[in-house]
Amino acid sequence: MRTDSETLNVEFTVNGEARRVSIPPRRTLADVLREDLGLTGTHLGCEHGVCGACTVIVDGEPVRACLMFGVQAAGCEIETVEGLALPDGSLNDLQRSFSEHHGLQCGFCTPGMLMLGTAYVRRAVAADRESVREVVSSNLCRCTGYQGIVDAVCELVCHPDGTGAGEDPAGDS
């Protein structure tokens, strides 16, 4: 039987930087980021994969970091909210849009919403509001009633008349 003190060495990159951690196999990626790497921008809202506050990007895909073990991230490229701002520290377009549209209040769901939105915006060219709502519905927010969040994401991907232009980038891929 394994003892709970057994650890494994795991290497991956976080926000472009190579990291190596020695972690128990049962530690989730969320806990590895928060506890081992001090990246507390990734939040835990439910720890059972529903709320999405812990969403990070793993190899380009939004992932619930509470449902993935740290050891499963071996060799992966991980992006977290700490890596979003521009090199000079200023907010990127999505972050700025969240602020302008009041897409955050208490800020707890915000990192997860931003990472979800980041993965979506990268491939969405011309979405409609309904598609954006469907994507945002992956995660939960208790403060905003979602309107500011949907507005913020739409600002980057929706045609000014609010309609889509053909393909639905919200589709699974």
Partner: peptide, 21 residues
Amino acid sequence: MSRLEDAALLTGRGRYTGDID
């Protein structure tokens, strides 16, 4: 006005009780 508290919360610099180490 956009909120003065937003920048920290949007960049992972928020500090909640569970972040205190």
